[in-house]
Design a binder for these strands. Structure first.
Lengths: 201, 201, 201, 201
DNA sequence: TATGAATGAGCTTTCATTCAT
DNA sequence: AATGAATGAAAGCTCATTCAT
């Protein structure tokens, strides 16, 4: 009898090993040989676990979703004051591993702009982000209703801005780390936002 | 040397015509034939003006810089109250032309993360952005000193956040336009930021 | 050595199961996995019984010879008047099973033209055909000598024509069945041949 | 200005050079490199003239049709007594070039049995053959009506048999030339057929 | 100078065969 | 003995670059 392997586990492992390569070289520029090398297997072996190169990207994106979801879930419960804990959440994301995922995420996002071929990957992600945004908006709304926030704030607009500005910050930070201390900027910004949002401010 | 002027003009024209293709297909996926077609010239002719495909990207990025610089310059002089006119600037950027440039800009940014091969292109861009950020910081500083802004604001941190959050907003907007009305979000956000930054608020 | 019997039996069985696939897909296009699947065994198991894929083809061709020989033998004894019973023999061959064998036979024949690699397989077949032709020629000769056939008939040439024309008919029929009713054509042709060959005609 | 080439002519030339290879190795077994080598051009150059390998086969089959049509047309006008001139026609076909085409023709025929993917190529050929068969049948009919042939002959059945038996003869001859002198067999057979068909016989 | 014909390195994917279990 | 996981050679095809006209 041949070696017994857990195909799903193997797929996930190969995908996990591929993340760094995809991040560092990009999907197009990464060769199937690169991916095989990353898992120290033969090129042909890859095709026992994935139909096409695209299929590998799909698994990588699933792996990414799992990580992101984990991150979001882990941080949601501490999201009492939305502005309060976002820095902590971002902080959590500042690992090498998450950095790779973030690059892939931006690349997928761009590819999605270019071709509907990638849209399947992103639907899930869009949903996650939308959910996160809605949750954030609801928190803002609640606090606004309880008198904690100013009257003239549009919770949806603010939530949209907060979420997307985090991506902007991450991009600027990761792609040019020399320019600034992101942790300091984040704490400053959120201290500022908090006081300006709060009615007492 | 009028020849050189012609040559440079031709390079710029070809680059300008290539922008839409690069944005829509990406650098890798764009073939040299695509670029030649966009300028209705022969593939071989292209190589009279550019040494390599990479060389074309370089010129495209230069063209991009010129456009961005133009945009920044045009808007800088009206940047009295920084928060005040950013929406106007962004608004200016929301053309199809600028959208293409923005995509290329993000792609270059990512490629820069991946390979130092692209770093030459981006040094210039980083400088522009840094300049813009510094200018913004100085404006904030000035207004703070003149009593227009609150005491506890770090102008550098705020400037960094403002600039990068604009990129985040643009990415989220452009890559999923269905989700939100960016013009409304921008006006809301800036109304909010303005009142919260201002001492009077 | 009962083991060897088992081994040979297994080879024959696997070959028999492979016939349909080889006929439907062709030797090249048939994968080793296809063949293993047809016998519901593992791909590795196949290699306990066959050294190479070519080896399987060899056994298939042997299986084919056995079938053809059976068919010929079964029909030979009733070959009193050669023209008389050929239709019956052909008729016997018009099963799905024999159709598959016929396709493989033509393919082997072509491959033999292309490469001496296949010549071993075909030597046997050529011998069968030659034997059949000779037998046919002898029957014609006999009948001619006994005054049943015309004087000016060359038995060898006629036998050659009869045998090869059967292949032509089968090819044209099988590869474009819509065009004609082969059974009718056969009966017509043999009725005609018989009367024209016969002295009385 | 680059070299000016007649694309259609080039396609035809490449196809003509490919015929021998296709015949000797078969379509599947022939690599694109083989085909390029046969015309002493680079592999990439081929793709300036053909979209796919299949596309090359298509041109080869067109080339084949042109040859076959030429052959048929050239021989038709001398087809007064159908049985009379077929040997001459066949004779014409016994060149190396036609031999190659015949092998490809049989291979296409088999492939068509296997996959509808090849059916386009063969439709034309089937039409040619059908036309030829019909013409033959009409000639037989005419001669029968004019009293030249026996009453009980079915012209369609006989035409079908004559045409397909020629393919059978060719296959048997080409694939095993050592066995018989096809020219002799043909002359014998047609002498025999003619006398047996003719009323006077 | 302008052009596209020519090229081969390099890509993804397939599959006969080997091998560890 | 039986199995399928593992493998890399080899396939068809693309395309940046060169070159002859």
């Amino acid at each position: 009898m041949p070696k017994i392997v857990d195909r799903e586990l193997r797929r996930a492992t190969i995908a996990r090993n591929a993340i760094e390569i995809f991040a560092k070289k990009g999907f197009q520029q990464t060769t199937v040989q690169d991916i095989a090398d990353a898992s120290k297997i033969g090129k042909g072996t890859l095709y026992h676990y994935f139909h096409t190169k695209m299929d590998i990207l799909e698994e990588v994106s699933n792996e990414m979703f799992r990580n992101i979801k984990e991150l979001i879930d882990a941080s949601l419960f501490q999201l009492e004051n939305p502005a309060e804990n976002l820095p902590a959440i971002i902080e959590t994301a500042l690992t090498k591993e998450m950095e790779y995922l973030f690059i892939i995420y931006v690349e997928l996002w761009i590819n999605n702009y270019r071709s509907t071929k990638y849209s399947d990957f992103l639907e899930k992600l869009k949903d996650y982000i939308a959910d996160f945004r809605k949750l954030l908006a609801r928190k803002i709304e609640n606090r606004k209703n309880s008198g904690g926030f100013k009257e003239d704030i549009d919770p949806n607009a603010l939530a949209y801005y907060l979420v997307s500005s985090m991506d902007g910050l991450l991009i600027h930070y990761m792609l040019d780390k020399s320019q600034f201390n992101i942790r300091y900027v984040l704490s400053e910004v959120f201290r500022f936002l908090q006081t300006s949002i709060s009615r007492e401010a």
